[in-house]
Design a binder for these strands. Sequence first.
DNA 1: TCGCCAAACAAACGGTTGTTTGGTAGTTGA
DNA 2: TCAACTACCAAACAACCGTTTGTTTGGCGA
Lengths: 211, 211
Amino acid sequence: MTAKSRRANAAPQTRRPKAASRPRAAEAKREFPDERRQVLISEPARLFGSKGYENTSMRDIAAAVGILPGSLYHHFPSKGDLFIAVYSFAVSQSMDAVKAAVASRVEPWGRLEAACIAHMQGLLDKNRFAAVLVSHLSVDSLPEQVVILRDRYEAVFKELIAELQLPAGIDQRIFRLGLLGSMNWAITWYRPGGETPASIARKLLNAVRRG
Amino acid sequence: MTAKSRRANAAPQTRRPKAASRPRAAEAKREFPDERRQVLISEPARLFGSKGYENTSMRDIAAAVGILPGSLYHHFPSKGDLFIAVYSFAVSQSMDAVKAAVASRVEPWGRLEAACIAHMQGLLDKNRFAAVLVSHLSVDSLPEQVVILRDRYEAVFKELIAELQLPAGIDQRIFRLGLLGSMNWAITWYRPGGETPASIARKLLNAVRRG
DNA sequence: TCGCCAAACAAACGGTTGTTTGGTAGTTGA
DNA sequence: TCAACTACCAAACAACCGTTTGTTTGGCGA
C-alpha cells in the first residue's frame, strides 16, 4: 500500500446497495451485474495469485477485465480495497470447499485429511482461486481486515485439530501453523503435471499422522 | 523483475577481479574494502528480508548503505544482480550455520533438530540474515541462479533426512519440502518476544518425529 | 419524454521506479 | 610526477505506478 489511502473507512466490499430491487427487473434480457462482478473479482484473483500483489498493476487488471484502468475505480476505491475484496472472496470460496469436504467424513483424521485436500486443490489446481491467500507474504503491515479473514479461515483447521485428541506433548497451535505452512509453501515448488495436489496433501498429513 | 532487464548475461556476483592484489597493500591505514562490501550486502539483505524484493527500492538500499542511488551501479549492474549476490551470501551464511550445528550431534534425529534450530534462528532471530531466502515467493520466474543456490542449501536437509531411516511409506522428498515449508512459513506469523525460534523449531520437528 | 445513474472512456496528474551519464575527489602503481 | 583507477556525487532519463478528472454512453423508472 502506498501509505496514502484516503477514505479507508466503511466496509469496502459491501457495494451494490438496494440489491433487492435489481434482480426484479432482470428478464433474461442481459446478464446480471453479478456476473460482471465475478469477473471483476476472479480476474484480479488470478493475477494476484500468480504474480503477487506488487507485481500486478491496475493496468494489468484492467486489461484482463477488458476495461480502462481508471474505470476500475468506479468499482473499488483503491487497489488495496480491491485486494481485500478479492481476498475475502477467496476465503469464503475456500472455506466453503473445506467445509463441504469435511462434512462427508466422520473419523477425526479423515476429516482433517479431507480439509487438507480441499485446501491444496484450491491452492494449486486449475483455477487456483485460493492462491491469492498466500500471495502477500509482505511479512509486516498487511491490512487488519485480511488478518481477520485469515484467522477465521484457519479457525476451521483449529477445530479439526482439536478433534484429533493429540498427545499432551504436542502444541496444537504449532501443529496447525506447521501443517498450514507445509501446505501453503507448496505453491513455491509445485509444478502441474506431476503429483496431484490431493496426493501431496495426503503425504504431508501422513508425515504428522500418528495412531 | 520488470521484464526488461538488459545485459543479464555473464556471472553477476563474481565481481572484484584480481582480489588477491588488494589485501597486500592494506596496512591498517583504512578498513579493507571487504568491510565495505559486507555493508553493501548485509544492508540490502536486511531490507529484502523485512520488506520483500518488490517493496525495497534502490533508493531505500542506497540510503541504508549511505550512498546515492546511482552509486550502487558501480558495485552491481542491476537490482536483480544485487539480489542474487545477497541471496548467495545468505545461502552460504545459513549453510555454514546449519553445518556447524549439525557437527555437534551424532544421532540422526538430533542432527536434524540442530539443523532446524539453526535454520529458524537465521530466519527469525535478531539480524535475520536468512530471511531474504524466503522473501521472493513470486511463485514463477525467479532467476535460475537463485534456484541452484536454493537447491544446494536444501540438499543439506535431504542428506539429514536420508539418515533418519524413515519407514518406507514416507516420501522423503515431500517430508523435506513439508518440514522446510512449515519452518519458512513461520516468517508470516512469528512475532518476537514470544516463543523462541529454537523452541518453535523443536516443536515443528516433534510433530513429524517418530520413534 | 425527461431526468437519473451506473458504467465506461479518454486523458492526464504527481510521484516513484530502475537506470544512465558525466564529472570529480582521492588513492595507487609505475 | 603523472596516468590510471576506484568510489562516489549530482543530475537527469524514460517508463511505469496508483489515482483523478471530466466527459460520454446506454438503459431504466417516473
